[in-house]
Design a protein around this nucleic acid. Sequence first.
DNA 1: CGCATCTGAGACATCAATGTCTCATCCTGG
DNA 2: CCAGGATGAGACATTGATGTCTCAGATGCG
Lengths: 197, 197
Amino acid sequence: MSQMRYSCLMAVDRDHVLRSAAALLTRKSTATMDEVAKAAGISRATLHRHFAGRDALVRALEALGIAECEAALDAAGLDDGTATDAVRRLVREIEPAAGLLAFLYTENQLFEGEEQNAGWTRIDDRIAALFRRGQSSGEFRIDLTPAWLTEALYGLLASGAWLVQSGKGAPKDFQHMIVELLLGGALRHHAPRREEP
Amino acid sequence: MSQMRYSCLMAVDRDHVLRSAAALLTRKSTATMDEVAKAAGISRATLHRHFAGRDALVRALEALGIAECEAALDAAGLDDGTATDAVRRLVREIEPAAGLLAFLYTENQLFEGEEQNAGWTRIDDRIAALFRRGQSSGEFRIDLTPAWLTEALYGLLASGAWLVQSGKGAPKDFQHMIVELLLGGALRHHAPRREEP
DNA sequence: CGCATCTGAGACATCAATGTCTCATCCTGG
DNA sequence: CCAGGATGAGACATTGATGTCTCAGATGCG
């Protein structure tokens, strides 16, 4: 009874704490538990009541990032229309999570261990499948592997988030920057493509 | 006299320690001073005789990364020939330093403070100038800013280093992967470029 | 109001990494 | 051979973050 109400309230607060932590750690990845607590407007004691420790907090953020990522993948409808358009939709849907993903991307702790969260593998596979579909349909070039295109997308998302974060780029350009570079590259299409000896 | 011999020997050893540390921290960025010392084949005491502390070590690695980067920029001859070819040469020259750069790129400690090493600004400016030259010559599209192309290059270098590191990509493909994606993008050039509403 | 629960503040112990120091040993040039 | 500098091993104190605990006050609800 009161137990149920308890868990409900906790869930709400927990989500708020999680998002505050994500916002802070995105800017300052070395922030201390004190700072995380202050950023969420709670005390360190309460923070520990939600997350057993820093490790648990990071793991929870990882789960949040995976969930948002998979939600973006679902919302983008990767199997619909051309792969090109699907990539555009994917980047647009994933943009709100880009900052969090950039943080997780640099949190090597998550990947140094033996087993990493299976969620990343699922996401990798879905994105790689999208690029593979584009290659099969003839839209994408085949000399760049799906694994590389996937990894490159992560890198560009992180770079884009960082550029916006630092004020050297406008948030409104985020999708355009990433999609255009990823799909079209820096060259103008009529430009001569000279090989180097 | 013996002071001179001293500093000479130290310089050699120091460089060896620095490169060992770079190799280790590239793989495990949270490595402890003990591990760094063991990786270099020296004791922790000797490590401290070379670098006052972890912070000094990271700063030295930063200086090394900047030096290697600027050396690559020099070797690439960014002002010669087409900007396209200059980018190819740049990526080729910078490849050996990519792992170290990826480590420094995620070492937020270096950028969170007030003043960051002016070397990065110099490097940013030189690379951005290259992209700007390519835009002026008509080689590169102008809707992607030089600042973004520069940041994207860093991101792709880090992604490429990570892909090779994890064994999901071959070292021999490094230059090709990065240059082709950065310049040409994922689309085949004759593919239709549809806009999304 | 009275009870239960949650919270904030802070004290406290713990723990890992770090920085410092000493001393025995090794090596090398003279 | 021998003296001086460099090294390795380890003891030791320090430090900063972390995890745990207590207790008083706030909040909410019947």
